[in-house]
Structures are given as C-alpha cells and as structure tokens.
C-alpha cells in the first residue's frame, strides 16, 4: 500500500477530519467532495504538513514520520494553493530541482516546459493561471517518482491543456508500480483516469467505490410521488425531493432496469453521485 490513512483524526474549532483511506500500488485514486469537505486537509495530513490528533498515516508502508530523504524523493506533489516562489523563473526552478532530486533530468524538464509554452526567463508571477498549473505538474513529474499526490492539478487549465496533462498522467501509470492520489473539481477528467474514488464530506468519507462500478451499476431514477410509493425501495441509497417527485440514487441499476422498466433511469456519473450522496436523504 503506497498510502494508508487509518482512522486519522484532526480537530479544529469548526472542522473535524475523521478519515481512513488507502491507495494501493498501480492505482489512480480520486478524493472528491465539495469545497471545505476536507480534501486539502487530508492531502496535508498525508504530506506531513499537519499532524494527526489520532490515527496513523503511512506512506510507502512506513509511518509518515519515519520517511527518509530517499522515500521523499519518490514523491511528486502538486498543491492547489502553493508552489515555488513567484519571484523565481523556470531556469531557477530547474536549478533548485537539480540540487534537490538525484533523478532530476534538467534537459528533459526544460524541453517539456518549452513544449508546454512556458518561457524559461519569465518570472512565475507573470505566468497565467494555466501556465502556473502546467509548471506545477511538470515539477511534480520531473524526477523518478513512485507516487503523485495532486491536489486540484487541472485548476485553471483549458480543455486542450487538461487533455495533455491527463495523457501525461496515463503515460506515467504505464510501468504499473506507480500510483496517483488526485483531487479535482472536473469529474469528467476523473472518470476517464481513476480506478476508484473516495467521496469526502464534512471531514468524513461518505463512500468508496471503484469507478467502473460507479459508471456501470449506479443509476439515477426520476420518479413521481406515486411511482415512489409503489416501487421496491430495497436498493436505493439516497432520495432527493424534486418538483416532479423524487430523484433516487441506486447502486443496482440493472435491478430497476429489469424489474421497473417503466421508471426513467439516467446513467450514474461522479457529479450526480456527489450531489445525491451529499444533498439527498437516506431512504
């Protein structure tokens, strides 16, 4: 297991994190949830930027406090609101990385920066939001890593740039022994990239599911009040009141397709699951 959070708790005055999570080797795992759900706090906990009040954080099978320099070199990080000083330029960043990571390839890094249209001698503070996002990802992938921890890596990128980055991440996963933990607000990116995802809300993990299962077995039923009363409700996870009656989330789409063929059924997506799991009520 490359990342393991075992009953990790962190208490602030207005927020409590209580979270267990695992990222196995060869997996792309997403952490999704609305703003303020605890995604960044969880990332900070994994990276040792904050300390747990209870529970245990493991990286590469070791307690996060016991990580060596060599272990940390195997980690690539993108933080949504943090990076290199914006008073540096790309050449400065390359020099810093060259003296920080033993496996950093300066020429390869600068070539990639050029490919993504990042000028070498322009201060980072003059970069657009998209350029800064691209640089953060290139920095995270500039050395030989086993694990990428990416907090909102695609924020501010246009569709084409996002697709290029996603291709880079897919290429990164080819060797098979690497993993990615990623959070993003753009669920379509996650659906095409992730093996599984955790939904976090108010500091708690509400669900953990494989993406294939979500896309294959989850469905959204749209029913009237009468249909709702008459139907079998055994496999419903959440319901939400609508003007026409109810929206219902199920993880047994096939059951309702076979037994209630007259009901309107929509394919499950990450966005709908998030909305229903958070806004909906338990059936």
């Amino acid at each position: 297991m490359l990342i393991k959070l075992d009953k990790v708790e962190k208490h602030y005055s207005a927020f409590h994190l209580n979270c267990s999570l695992e990222v196995p080797e060869g997996n792309v795992t997403a952490l999704i949830g609305p703003n303020g759900a605890g995604k960044s706090t969880t990332f900070k906990m994994i990276l040792g930027l904050i300390f747990p009040d209870n529970g245990r954080v493991e990286l590469f099978g070791k307690d996060s406090k016991d990580l060596t320099r060599e272990d940390r070199e195997k980690l690539g990080v993108v933080l949504s609101d943090s990076g290199f000083s914006s008073y540096l330029d790309v050449q400065d960043v390359a020099s810093v990385l060259h003296h920080t990571y033993s496996t950093f390839d300066r020429k390869h890094f600068l070539d990639r920066c050029a490919k993504f249209g990042l000028p070498e001698k322009k201060k980072l503070k003059e970069f657009s939001t998209g350029m800064k996002a691209k640089l953060k990802i290139l920095v995270a992938m500039s050395h030989d890593t086993k694990l990428l921890i990416l907090d909102e890596p695609a924020a501010g990128l246009d569709v084409l740039a996002r697709e290029e980055i996603l291709d880079m991440l897919r290429e990164y996963m080819i060797p098979g022994d690497r993993s990615i933990l990623i959070s993003s607000h753009i669920s379509s990116d996650l659906e095409g990239l992730c093996d599984d995802f955790y939904l976090i809300h108010e500091g708690k993990i509400l669900m953990h599911e494989e993406t294939d299962v979500l896309l294959g077995s989850y469905g959204l039923l749209k029913v009237t009040e009468e249909q709702y009363k008459a139907m079998d409700r055994s496999y419903l996870l959440r319901r939400k009141r609508e003007s026409f009656g109810y929206s219902l989330l199920t993880d047994q789409k096939q059951f309702y397709q076979e037994n209630e063929p007259n009901l309107s059924m929509e394919k499950g997506s990450i966005d709908e699951v998030i909305t229903m799991m958070i806004r909906g009520e338990t059936v």
Binding site: L75, L79, S85, Y101
Partner: peptide, 14 residues
C-alpha cells in the same frame, strides 16, 4: 508568499 512554505515542506530535504 502564496503559501509557498507548504510546498517547500514537501521537498525531500525536510
């Protein structure tokens, strides 16, 4: 500046 310390603390040096 710009929360840069968080990122610096993720570098291998510690």
């Amino acid at each position: 500046y710009d929360n840069g310390m968080s990122f610096l603390m993720t570098l291998p040096c510690g």
